[in-house]
Design a protein around this nucleic acid. Structure first.
Length: 203
DNA sequence: CCGGGGATTATCT
DNA sequence: GATAATCCCCGGC
């Protein structure tokens, strides 16, 4: 198991990186508690031109400032006043490409995830959906701006991270209906058949 | 199984 | 004042 190098995130098409993230491991160390899970669902958000992105038309505020940071930066925002969303910043500094991690399959520290979420071990919702996985991993707003190559929120690859093309599904993104025609872009990727993948978008 | 609506608050207009 | 890259519960089938 090794940390993903900077070259994984930098200067590549964010949609391709979103697909490559399927199968990788997210590891968090929060208050010296380690928890981890395998990524089974992601969504890409393209810089500037994507109506569904927080940085559409170059919008830049205190909230989304970390999207403009260097590749490999952690971007976290709060949605609906209570859910933390975990994002991976890619490409290069000043280009706000980002990837939302929407679901993981628990790997280690499940007992801590249960404690944080109040859910049972066999409750699939423990890490299904972006709000749920962030809660299980102990992710908070203060972690935004950290780096995935650091020591608190990290991305690793192991012997099971390489996913064959035919095992990855593609669809439009979830919850972005207000983005007009961009809501139809095929920027969502998931591991076919995995139980932790969140609900399929309706046609 | 599926759709409707409430929760709850940071953020932007 | 309105909205939001969501989640959960409930009622109806």
């Amino acid at each position: 198991m090794k940390k993903l190098p900077l070259s994984f995130y930098a200067n590549k098409d964010v949609v391709q990186v979103a697909k490559d993230l399927i199968g990788m491991l997210v590891v968090t160390r929060v208050n010296d508690v380690f928890t981890s899970g395998r990524i089974v669902e992601t969504e890409a958000y393209k810089a500037i031109i994507d109506k569904a992105s927080h940085s559409y038309r170059g919008k830049r505020t205190a909230r989304n400032e970390d999207m403009y940071a260097a590749a490999g930066t952690v971007y976290i925002y709060i949605c609906y006043g209570m859910h933390h969303m975990l994002n991976v910043v890619t490409n290069e500094k000043e280009i706000p490409d980002a990837i939302l991690i929407r679901a993981i399959e628990p790997v280690a520290g499940i007992e801590f995830m249960m404690k944080r979420t109040g859910k049972k071990r066999d409750d699939l919702n423990i890490t299904r959906g972006p709000g749920n996985l962030a809660k299980a991993l102990g992710i908070q707003k203060k972690h935004s701006g950290l780096h995935f190559t650091g020591h608190h929120i990290m991305l690793y690859q192991d012997g099971h991270s390489q996913i064959p093309e035919h095992a990855i599904g593609t669809s439009k993104r979830i919850g972005v209906a207000s983005a007009g025609d961009d809501a139809l872009l095929p920027y969502r990727f998931y591991l076919k058949g995995n139980k932790y993948v969140s609900a399929r978008p309706k046609k």
